[in-house]
Each structure stands twice: as C-alpha cells, then as structure tokens.
Design a protein around this nucleic acid. Structure first.
Length: 564
RNA sequence: CGGGGCGUGGCGCAGUGGUAGCGCACCCGCUUUGGGAGCGGGGGGCCGCAGGUUCGAGUCCUGCCGCCCCGACCA
C-alpha cells in the first residue's frame, strides 16, 4: 500500500474525549472513528489489524477442531424466553418490534442460537462431541461504555460453543479451548493470566477469565504471593480468620448514643471489628434482604447475587430501610421476621457479637447465630481483599488491575435442559447435552494489545497484528535514482511476502518518521540520499532506538532477522 | 441511574451582550527535505437543538439532546 493512496489521516492531537492510551493512539493513528458512545467504525489500518487478529483466532480455533459457523444478530425474543434470559440479562437486551409487531432482540451473545443449532443437529451420542464458533457482531446496551475499544456497546466477539455427551468430555473440550486461547493471546503479543471468575449472566458452574494485567484495567484481580491462585475480585475467596467459640453469654442491651458505624462501635467498646456483626440491607426483586457479616469483612455483591439465585441485589435506600421499620445505625437481624436472612460464614467463626438492637441508640452484647437470629442461607459472601490469606493456604493475596480479554465457561446443561437439546446415549437413555462456551472480544483484544505495547511515540505492535509489517520510507523522492530504488524495494519486499506500507508522499522526513512510529509498524526502512551515501538503506526495528545501514542487496536478509 | 465536566471548521482550543477567531490539518504558488518545515496567498462555521430575554445572543435564561470522567452496573 502506498501512503499517498491510503485512506485515513494521522492526527497530531488526540480528541479531547479520549483518555486511555489505546483510545488516543488508535484514533490518532487513524485506526478507528467514534460514531456514538461505545460505537466505532474501523478505518483501513484498524480493519487490517482486526482482520489479522480474526485470522489468528480462526487458525487456533480450527487447530483444536472448531468449526466456523454464523448465527444471526437479530433474533426473536421468544428464543430468550426459552432460556429464561429475556428479562434477566444485564445489561438489558436491546429490543425492537418487526413490521408484524413480533418482539425481536439484538443478540448480546449467542448461547440460545447455538443451543438451537445443536438441538436440531444432535440426536445421538454418535453426533458428539463437536465445537462450533463464529466471529460475529454483538450489541449490549452497556450502562457506561468507556475507554475507546475497551468497553463498547456494539462489538465483535469470537464465541465458541462445545457440545459433549458427558462431563469428562466437556472438560476435555474446555481444556482444548484453554490451550487455544493461550496460543491466541501469545500470538497477539499479550501476556495474559488465567483467573477464576464469576460466570455472571452466562451461567454455568466454572468459568475462567483471561486477563491482561495493566493499571488501566477495570477489573480487580487477586493473586497469591506464593502460589498460582488468581481470581477476579467478584469470585476470589480467602481463608477467613477463625476465633475460638466461647460459652454463649447473655444478651444484654446497652446504650450507644451517636454510634452509627461498625468502626465507631468497635472503638467505643474497645474491641476488634471481628467482634461485631454487621447488618446490611439489600433490595432484591423489591424485597428487603438482611445480610449479616462479621464486622471485619465486607459484602461481595456478586457472591450475594449467586446465593440468592441470580437476582441482582442493590443496597436498600434509606427510605426502604425506614419503611421496613429498621433503625439504620442500630440494625441487626436479631428479632427480624418476614424478611430473608443471609449470613456470611465468617459469623460462624466466632461468637458473642456486638450487634444492633433495632432500637435507636442501642446495641446488644453477646449476640449469636441460631440462638438470637436465624439464617435462611449461610454462605461465603465476603469480599476478598489484598493482604488476606490465599484460599489454597499458600501466601497472601495481592490486588491488581486487569482487562478481561477472554472468558471461558463450563455451562453444563443450563441451556440444553431448558431448551431441549438432548440426545440418546449408548444405553438408550435420553440425556441433556453438556455445553461449554468461550468468548474473546476482538476489538478489546486490539485495544489491550495497544495498552500494553506503546511508548511516547505511539503504538509498538507485534508483527502478528500490526496493519503492515514494514514501513518503507523514501526521502528525496524527486531524485529518480532514489525513487527507482524505493520502487524496486517496495516490489521486492512484497514479493517476499511482507505487508508493506510505502510512504511515497512528498512531505518532510520528520512527518514520515512520526507516522511510522505512531502506527507502530515493526520494521522501518528508509532509503534516501544520505542512506545511499552511507552504503545502502536504513533498517530499524520499532522497538530499537538505532537503525543500521544495510546494502540494498541485503535488505531482505536483514528484514528477515526482524520478522517472521 | 447519581455526581461532575464539556459541546465553536476535520482535530486541539480562544472568544462574558455589539462584524466569529487562533494553532494544526486542507487547497494554490515558491522555497525546502533526517524527527510533525519556511514564506506568500486561499477555502471551509445552522457557535449541539428548540424556545425565551434583548435594538442586538456563541455569550444571558429555560428545556432538551449528545459526549467524556467518577460512582453504581458490567458475557
């Protein structure tokens, strides 16, 4: 490609809207153009990078036996009623009615259609296993898109779905995908870690995220200092401090004027926060739920949602708390009836707690679970934090930020059972298909790659995903000797199989260098009167500071050393 | 959805009631050619939208829309 023909201009200044490095650089380099919040067009350079990423993904999916398919973006809402996600998917499904007033949705993900595909295509265990995948547009009406391509509403995702006869098969399919994912990210120049994750709106039991650790990430990742334990903050667990359980004391009420928080209560009584039972009130499906957790821990709302069966909890408003007859600042589960009680298991690792008396200005001593208040659910709903003990007993947790670039799920039969995707096994029995699903955000992957590969001058893209492998700049092109040689080099490099961007523009050298750096092309070749005087052409890697002079006849050899 | 900020040429910005400007980019000419060149000339604006106040509104008032950031939320 000749720069003089290339559509798209580089910008000296990034739009004021852009804040992330990747957002700024992708816009400045002419890769992407914003159309609306979280909605982008790809310009030629950006499209080339994305195409390369897609192809890497395809190769690795095919390598582990994936078969490419394509499913519709527009789907009848009834399909989502079958799976039960029509009203529960968060963010809300984008919906519209077609001409005949039939309810339609714009797909945010494709488990339903994939299950339908399997439902029709699988009747016998002999049809299993198989894995299908697509690279397809999704739309999620995110509450808050942000960071250029990092979090968008319309986006392209590679989504794969595996179908197996039994759990062992599903595990094998899952492992194959994990292998493929690791190769994909490595080839794209991303150093990712696989962490345990919450499966959220997709469902299923186990899920893992592939995360690029970087400060600009929006997820919190907790990792052990001494083992390979790593988990998203939504999922992370830890070993809770346990205290000896003494004899249960008598409950006694005492006055606590002006004490509203656990901190104040612990301080006033001169005890550790772990001697207090904290009550937090949530609104879940318009009902108040009381959550009790030991005062030294906080509630993890994702875990809470999961123990509540998937309904989204939200902190009750002061009005709701009051309406429920509760005394904020002095509340506890003691004596409460008619509302669901969830208790974190930390409460069972101690006794004789300080807790609210449900009476303005009073608290209670020696409060104990079962005797003084009930639990409908006892579970781990505590938020892991840095410094806590790793759940495997090895080391402490540290907190990092990360960008989720891939997510793999063991779905089991959550979709197949609801949607009737079953088969007859060897014994003639009817069984639900065991599924897995596996996603990679394609645009996000590019953004993540830029986030982790840049310097003061621009992107530093690995050859695998750079729009071009070689930037060939001819200077003093009015000199026919130089322009002839530049043309010859352009031909030769292309014949050798390299993607070459030939800067044939009649502009100052500095502009060409700036553009080459900004776009992040791995190898830059300069041919000029100066280089010829020095005995050839200049070859420079984007990653190195200095260039080397190479005889014209040796250019291909020299480039070959820097590229594959 | 709560809090904050911003909407003026492709991009960055100035303009607090009186003829819409600057830098970059763009077009023409000449001079230039190793890190975003110099000189000269030129084109491009429903100042987000609607209503209002005023002799007069980019500027003041009201409403709406859009975008960004923080939070909430987030396969």
């Amino acid at each position: 490609m000749r720069s003089s023909q290339l559509f798209g201009k580089t910008l000296r200044q990034a739009p004021a809207d852009a804040e992330n490095i990747s957002h700024k650089l992708l816009v400045r380099a002419g890769f992407i153009q914003q159309i609306a919040a979280g909605i982008f067009s790809l310009q030629p350079l950006g499209n080339r990078s994305i195409t390369k990423i897609r192809n890497i993904i395809r190769e690795e999916m095919d390598r582990v036996g994936g078969q490419e398919i394509n499913m519709p973006v527009v789907q009848p809402r009834s399909l989502w009623e079958e799976s039960g996600r029509a009203d529960t998917f968060v963010p809300p499904l984008a919906r519209f009615q077609d001409k005949r007033e039939r309810d339609m949705v714009i797909a945010p993900t494709h488990e339903e259609t994939a299950t339908v595909m399997a439902r029709a295509g699988v009747t016998s265990y002999r049809d299993l296993p198989f894995t299908i995948y697509q690279i397809q547009t999704k739309f999620r009406d995110e509450t808050r898109p942000r960071g250029g391509l990092l979090r968008v509403r319309e986006f392209e995702m590679k989504d794969a779905y595996s179908f197996d006869a039994d759990e062992e098969g599903m595990d094998r399919s899952f492992q194959a995908m994990v292998t493929a994912y690791k190769r994909i990210f490595k080839r794209c120049g991303l150093d990712v870690v696989m962490v345990e994750a919450d499966s959220g709106g997709i469902g299923g039991k186990d899920s893992n995220e592939f995360v690029l650790l970087t400060e600009s990430g929006e997820d919190t990742i907790l990792m052990s200092t001494e083992s390979d334990y790593a988990a998203n903050g939504e999922k992370a667990s830890f070993i809770k401090k346990a205290f000896p359980i003494g004899e249960l004391g008598e409950v006694e009420e005492f006055a606590t004027p002006n004490i509203k928080t656990i901190e104040e209560l612990a301080k006033a009584e001169d005890v550790s926060k772990s001697k207090t039972a904290k009550a937090v009130f949530y609104s879940v499906n318009d009902e108040i739920v009381v959550v009790t957790i030991r005062g030294d821990y906080d509630v993890n709302e994702t875990k809470l949602r999961n123990v509540l069966g998937g309904a989204e909890p939200r902190l009750a408003t002061p009005e709701e708390v009051k309406a429920a007859g509760l005394v904020s600042g002095s509340a506890s589960a003691v004596g409460l009836t008619g509302m669901k009680s969830v208790v974190d298991d930390s409460i069972t690792m101690g006794s004789n707690y300080l807790a609210g008396a449900n009476k303005e200005g009073f608290h209670l001593r020696n409060v104990n679970l079962d005797r003084d208040f009930k639990a409908d659910i006892i579970a781990d709903i505590a938020e892991a934090k840095k410094g806590y003990l790793s759940p495997d007993g090895k080391g402490k947790l540290v907190a990092k930020r990360g960008i989720e670039v891939g997510h793999v799920f063991k779905l089991g039969t959550v979709y197949s059972s609801k949607m009737g995707a079953n088969f007859t096994d060897e014994d003639g029995e009817q069984k639900d298909v065991m599924m897995g699903c596996y996603g990679i955000g394609v645009g996000r992957l590019l953004a993540a790659a830029v986030e982790s590969n840049n310097d003061d001058f621009g992107m530093v893209l690995p050859q695998a995903i750079a729009p071009y492998a070689v930037y060939l700049a001819g200077l003093n092109l009015n000199d026919s000797d130089i322009s002839d040689k530049a043309e010859q080099l352009y031909e030769a490099l292309q014949s050798a199989g390299y993607d070459v961007l030939f800067d044939d523009r009649d502009i100052p050298a500095g502009v060409k260098f700036k553009d080459a750096d900004l776009i992040g092309i791995p190898v830059r070749i300069v041919i000029s009167s100066r280089s010829l005087e020095n005995g050839g052409v200049e070859v420079k890697a984007r990653t190195s500071k200095d260039s080397e002079i190479v005889a014209e006849s040796d250019v291909l050899t020299s480039v070959k050393k820097l590229l594959v």
